[in-house]
């Protein structure tokens, strides 16, 4: 029972970590909180769903495609729209990204209606049974993708010129400019990467959950909770927060009567408690102005 709980928590937590990673990356570097992040996930999920339904492309194969499409869309969106609000008050930035989210959400309703959708590849119902432990194949694959993407992101941040430059900007933007870093270009680049990760997360979700145009905001709130849990702006915090939320939700679903309904509320309770008791998160120290 405990082993099953831990496995389920890890599988869910890996996905949650991925959910928050993109958001944390763009917030940490550009200092703009992207309220349309959930919609990017939603569109990635629809992209994978239609690729599967129309052309029979496996949702997992859609992940690299969604990474590329998300990167391009994110880059253009930042360079031509969001960049204008870089020096604006936070409220303006929030209204702008929130507005973009609303437009995308309603465009999705117009294009594809509000029906519940789900891509169902052959393995989506399959499971591996090891002794007493039960591992759903779909979730295992999603977890693997999440772990791989998180690892690639980490390598990029620590081993490459632009990854290092992104961390420098997050820590001291003016000093980064003094290094000869074109900060505006790096902002666009990082935002593009965060949208690429979001779209890929959506593609990974498409085979294990139902999709509607409205899932974005719900996912965004969870990503916020994870960000606050781990500490805003910290990549390792996002991973830790994701795993923690996965564990909390799964535990509630297991041990509380009618738990699977209550599990959905865990993120809100955690968000509330952390903001009250430990607003800097588990390992966060830096505060953005």
């Amino acid at each position: 029972m405990i082993l099953q709980l831990l496995i389920d928590s890890a599988l869910l937590g890996g996905l949650y970590a991925l959910l928050a990673l993109g958001l944390v990356l763009s917030f940490g570097v550009t200092n703009i909180l992207n309220f349309a992040h959930g919609e990017a996930i939603m569109l990635g999920a629809y992209g994978a769903f239609w690729a599967f339904t129309l052309w029979g492309i496996d949702p997992l194969l859609s992940i690299p495609i969604m990474l590329v499409v998300g990167f391009g869309a994110g880059f253009v969106c930042f360079r031509y729209v969001i960049e204008r609000s870089l020096d604006a008050p936070h409220l303006n930035q929030i209204l702008l990204t929130f507005g973009i989210g609303l437009i995308l959400q309603n465009a999705a309703v117009l294009a594809w209606t509000g029906d519940l959708r789900s891509a169902n590849p052959s393995y989506s119902m399959a499971a591996i049974n090891l002794a007493e432990v039960f591992i759903p194949v779909g979730r295992l694959l999603t977890f693997t993708v999440a772990a791989a993407l998180a690892a690639i992101l980490y390598m990029w941040l620590t081993r490459t010129e632009y990854g290092r430059a992104s961390r420098a900007i997050a820590q001291n933007e003016r000093a980064a400019k003094l290094m000869g870093i074109d900060t505006r270009f790096v902002y666009s680049l990082v935002f593009a990467i965060s949208i690429a990760v979001a779209a890929a997360t959506g593609a990974a979700l498409s085979s294990i959950t139902t999709i509607t145009p409205f899932i974005g905001f719900h996912l965004l709130v969870k990503a916020f909770a994870i960000m606050v849990l781990g500490g805003a702006g910290s990549i390792s915090g996002a991973v830790l927060g994701g795993v923690l939320l996965g564990l909390l939700e799964t535990t509630v679903a297991y041990y509380v009567p009618e738990g699977s309904g209550w599990a959905e509320g865990v993120a809100f309770v955690a968000l509330f408690l952390f903001l009250l008791i430990r607003p800097q998160g588990l390992i966060g120290t830096r505060v953005h102005g």
């Binding site: 010129e161 290092r164 430059a165 961390r167 420098a168 820590q171 001291n172 003016r174 000093a175 980064a176 003094l178 290094m179 000869g180 870093i181 830096r286």
Partner: peptide
């Protein structure tokens, strides 16, 4: 190149990473 007032090093990067950033150009 400027060594700014108050030093402005990147606090959460190590010495070598700070130096590597100096040669970003």
């Amino acid at each position: 190149a400027l060594s700014p007032e108050g030093r402005q090093v990147f606090p959460e990067l190590n010495v070598e990473e700070n130096l590597l950033l100096g040669s970003f150009a």
